Amino acid sequence: MHAMKRPDRMGRWIALAAMFSALPVFAQTATAPAAVASMNREVADDGWRYSLGLGIFETPRYPGASASRFQPAPLVGVSYGRFFFGSVPDANVLFGLGAYLYRGENVRLGVALSYDLVNPREASDDAHLRGLPDIDRTAHATLFASYNIEWLSVVGAASQDIAGKHEGTSASLDVLAKYRPISKLTFTAGPGVTWGSAQYNQTFFGITAEDSTRSGLPAYAPGSGVASVRMTAAASYLLDKHWNLGARVTVSRLPGAAGNSPIVEKKTQTTYGAFANYVF
């Protein structure tokens, strides 16, 4: 009987991972919540698994924006044993390729390669950005780890720009408590933090002397440090062995040097999302 339950558990695992990792909506940014561990500790040891879904999200136009935008996002997951493609479990990646290096009962460690599907920021996103350069899409290499027990997930990830687009290094940590009032319904909530290297924070929040001349904003060099702190609340409902529905809200705060950037119009950033996902 234990083996027969694995497909359902794996399906929920993929769907939830897709929901969490999709909320950055195609790009990894300072205000985007890091992905959190799945709600279930068990991961299938072998065999193919597939999931397909669609999410709709309301996100800030760029890190620090006062305006937001709605955007649909495809949710795709394919896995075979320890290898996976698409929405990467336990990592802040919407579309990527990765593998688990270690999978224990409570601890997981893995790596992933990914590429932004949209530019993290464009000058056309807001009049406030006029004269500032776009932030181009780039490739990321991510190392992630998670610790999962029945009522708690702790997830850490470190990501490096490997395509030379000046996005540097970022690291995140999320701690989420889980509550399941009934077997099909799961609530999750908890805090998280993202740290950015000097290069990362300069790209997202800094203004060079040349950019200052073009934009009229004062030059600014934030240095390395905490790029965002956040609180996340989510819910997921398993309709049957194939269908998942979910929703999440994340409220982020841009502290210190990041929040004091002249680029930032609003230090408190809110992201909403809802999704439907089908597991084959």
Rank of each mutant, 00 (worst) to 15 (best):
I162M: 12
D161Q: 02
H2R: 12
T29Y: 07
G192S: 07
I162T: 09
S170F: 06
P255K: 01
A158F: 11
W151I: 13
G96T: 02
R12F: 15
A34E: 06
T169Y: 13
W243K: 07
A73T: 15
A198E: 13
A227T: 02
N277Q: 09
G225S: 06
Y179P: 08
A209Y: 02
A235C: 09
R130P: 11
A157R: 07
A221H: 13
I207K: 03
G192N: 02
R130T: 10
Q202M: 10
F144E: 00
L113T: 01
K165L: 05
D90P: 07
P262R: 05
A163H: 08
D116E: 11
V88K: 01
L75G: 04
F83L: 00
A99N: 06
A198Q: 12
T268W: 11
R121G: 09
Q269V: 09
G246Y: 03
T232W: 03
S236R: 05
S197Q: 12
D125T: 08
F205N: 00
E122L: 06
I162A: 10
G81W: 00
I149Q: 14
G223E: 00
A65T: 04
T186S: 10
G131Y: 01
W151N: 10
P63M: 12
A112L: 07
H140P: 08
K241I: 14
I149Y: 15
G53M: 01
F70H: 15
A234H: 03
S114I: 03
M39F: 13
R121I: 09
W151H: 11
G168F: 03
R130F: 15
S228A: 03
S146Q: 02
A141V: 04
G196V: 07
K241L: 13
L239M: 14
D240M: 02
P63E: 07
A18Q: 06
D134G: 13
K241S: 14
A15I: 03
M4H: 14
A91C: 05
A171Q: 00
G223D: 01
W13T: 14
A18G: 12
V279N: 09
V118E: 12
P181S: 05
S236T: 09
F85G: 08
I135M: 05
D240V: 01
V155A: 15
V229E: 13
F95N: 11
T271S: 05
A112E: 07
R248Y: 04
E167C: 13
L52I: 04
V279T: 15
G81A: 02
M10R: 06
K5H: 11
M39D: 15
S146N: 05
A157W: 06
F26I: 12
F57S: 01
M19H: 13
R103P: 00
F20M: 15
Y272L: 12
G259H: 01
P262T: 04
N277W: 04
R214L: 14
D211E: 13
A177R: 05
A221L: 10
P181T: 06
H166Y: 14
G246T: 02
A112R: 03
W13A: 11
I149L: 13
G206E: 00
S51V: 06
G110T: 00
N201H: 06
G190D: 02
N148S: 11
S261L: 08
S68Y: 14
T29C: 15
T203C: 08
Y147F: 06
T142P: 07
L16R: 15
A258F: 02
A274H: 13
L185E: 05
F187I: 14
F26Y: 12
A145Y: 01
G225D: 03
Q160W: 12
L239W: 10
V25R: 01
